[in-house]
Design a protein around this nucleic acid. Sequence first.
DNA 1: TTCCTCAGATTGTTAGACAAGAATGCACGA
DNA 2: TCGTGCATTCTTGTCTAACAATCTGAGGAA
Lengths: 221, 221
Amino acid sequence: MSTEARLELGPSSLTDALYESIRKRIVNGEIPQGEKLTEVRLATEYNVARPTAKAALERLTALGLLRRTAHKTAVVPVLDEAEIRDLFFSRMTIEKAAVSALAATGEVPADAARAQVAIEYAARDRLFENQVEADIAFHTALVAAVGSRRLTRMHELIIGEVHLTMGQYQAHRKAAPTTVAEEHAAILEAIQQGDSSAAADHLAYHLEQAQGRLLSTLSGD
Amino acid sequence: MSTEARLELGPSSLTDALYESIRKRIVNGEIPQGEKLTEVRLATEYNVARPTAKAALERLTALGLLRRTAHKTAVVPVLDEAEIRDLFFSRMTIEKAAVSALAATGEVPADAARAQVAIEYAARDRLFENQVEADIAFHTALVAAVGSRRLTRMHELIIGEVHLTMGQYQAHRKAAPTTVAEEHAAILEAIQQGDSSAAADHLAYHLEQAQGRLLSTLSGD
DNA sequence: TTCCTCAGATTGTTAGACAAGAATGCACGA
DNA sequence: TCGTGCATTCTTGTCTAACAATCTGAGGAA
């Protein structure tokens, strides 16, 4: 990690900016698995007060991007197989409900379609990081399009860990570049046709494949 | 609200104790809808520092028990019909997944059975507050018994609002005391028989009834 | 009446400090 | 040599005090 860091001044709150900066560094793998993040270290690097760093760490901990218990230093977690399965079980629960609800309306969310295009570009250009980013955006768009604030918040609670794990294991590199896009397309098609159960099935298949790719990376190489 | 307050010294962290104390006062209706909670006020009442009060408020806000935006005072929210529907939609998503998973094992969670007994006692003795408490405990036990940490965390994210709303509208008073217990029993029975879809259906019916009771209270009297 | 300005109230952030819990390494004994 | 126990050190939890930024509401001007 570099000894200096700058914050974008976009967000109104300093804590927000700090949180967002650290979040990106974690999910991109810039801060690796097992790395310790102390409050003073972050405060020094970003030139903020310790309470500010503390607040950012607490928010990251709430989203599962850091682990810490009382009086102990926050650590970037390493998810083992059992936790990845738990993560995908929870994810499946939310996203299945989302695509079913979307299919009931028959409208394909514009943001999801846009993310789909971004995935294809990223896959073509071999931009792995963008590909992960766009994949997360696709799934996030599906959930957000339902319009349920609470479903969206629950999804936020777990999608960060998905992002983290994908970045760590770089599972997408295992998939043929177009595989993910095809699986996504099947989901969108079912939504457009208003077939709730088909949409849920395609989503379930896609997530099972994604989980399989992650787990094989975990045990394989 | 009284001008003084004491904290139980059980939890290791002062913030934890403060958070828990305020949480109880909110869900019990002791702090009513629309009430403003400023940081200094809480800090003064509980005799803690303002940053400590701030941390507790932030945790309550994350669980939906308070609402606040930047530079504005935290307020106990009032859920309108649309939000109650959204809340129950999200709740349904999680709890359906939970009871389906439980039915797949065929084991009735001991904690849920215990809560069920507590509900019957509370209903018999007309202890409304205990009844609500036990109802929340029942549903929480169902989700916890699945053993998925993330599903449990997502449920925690919304069950607080359910508790808050039930306390505010006192919807259980509308139900014949044994109605809730019977609906719960049907869910447990389906779980024991290993019938996932029946368990999900009974749960859906129960939650629809509960939502209906809340909404009729909202518009009716 | 309506809009604007300003003062008070509230939150965001910082600095410095002390206490309590956790982790580390070293010395001592078996 | 190896393991145990203690003490140092690091880190976090909490507090006090203060200033800056923002919001709210009241009062005055058009």
